[in-house]
């Protein structure tokens, strides 16, 4: 009987493991297979032609990069501020926990709700129409908890002894922040930013109403009524239409470019995270 239990558990685990790993690697392989054939340099550099299904994705890539840069510029200073306020200036541990909890909740907010918020605030209240800035700010708001939590985790991990030693030398709190806290925690902000960018690059819902269009935009020249093209939105629109055969290659090519961008950020965050974990172990 006991041997049966052992065998059963092992069998179930093997079956499930093979199935889900096979499924996931199958998906990855399928995406790679469909995507790699569809892209070349010209695909990256040429603008879209025809009804959006021919040519390259030049302005979709540029638009996505504009959105990402804006999101990063908006989120990094705020994440820095929250992380320092929570980790350095806030002394009550219960209040710290409460902020962490709020960050978890904020991190779970569905991305479509940022789209709705953007439509109501930037679109209706400020009357911006479709604007790249609105999209970037919304994406920045969406990835803010990711950045902040990654940064705050590193701030919390700074050994107390360093803070005490620096305070014992008479450094002010602001000097301790610059001399001790930031050098030891900025890596967390960087890896959080990379993870946030990986997420923001693929997001469609926040930019759906307020920042992205399918065609007819190049580089923005102002803020109001200056939308951009974006890779995920391009895929989203093309996937909805029953596309003609030629469009499918274009679609997979776009997906491959988007995936490459996302994986670039995710992989860039990986060694940093591993190194940081090692450093944390060395203490």
């Amino acid at each position: 009987m006991r041997r049966v239990v052992d065998h059963a558990v092992t069998l179930v685990a093997w079956a499930a493991g093979t199935l889900s790993l096979g499924l996931l690697f199958g998906i990855a392989g399928y995406l790679a297979w469909r995507g790699i054939g569809a892209i070349d340099l010209a695909f990256l550099l040429e603008p879209t032609r025809g009804a959006g299904a021919e040519g390259g994705v030049r302005y979709q890539v540029l638009g996505t990069l504009i959105l990402l840069a804006t999101a990063l510029a908006a989120a990094v200073p705020i994440a820095l501020g929250i992380g320092l306020y929570r980790g350095v200036y806030l002394e009550d541990p219960r209040a710290k926990r409460r902020i962490s909890l709020l960050l978890y909740v904020a991190n779970g907010v569905p991305s479509i709700l940022f789209g709705i918020l953007g439509l109501a605030f930037f679109g209706h209240f400020l009357g911006w129409g479709k604007s790249w800035l609105a999209g970037g700010l919304l994406l920045g708001m969406m990835i803010l908890p990711t950045l902040t939590l990654a940064f705050a985790e590193r701030v919390d991990a700074i050994p107390r002894k360093y803070i005490d030693a620096a305070a014992g030398l008479g450094l002010r709190r602001s000097q301790i922040v610059r001399a001790v806290v930031l050098p030891q925690s900025v890596g967390g902000l960087v890896s959080g930013a990379l993870l946030g960018l990986a997420r923001a690059a693929g997001e469609t819902a926040p930019i759906l109403f307020i920042a992205a269009v399918f065609s007819g935009a190049t580089l923005p020249k102002g803020i109001v009524d200056n939308p951009v093209l974006a890779l995920p939105y391009h895929i989203f629109v093309l996937a909805q239409d029953s596309f003609e055969p030629g469009a499918e290659a274009h679609l997979w090519g776009t997906a491959a470019v988007l995936l490459a961008l996302v994986m670039f950020f995710a992989l860039a965050a990986l060694p940093l995270r591993l190194r940081l974990h090692e450093e944390a172990h060395r203490g």
Binding site: K161, D164, A165, A167, G168, L169, G170, L171
Partner: peptide, 11 residues
């Protein structure tokens, strides 16, 4: 802070 600079500490 100035006090701590005048009264140093070793752990």
């Amino acid at each position: 802070d100035a006090l701590r600079a005048r009264v140093g500490m070793i752990f």
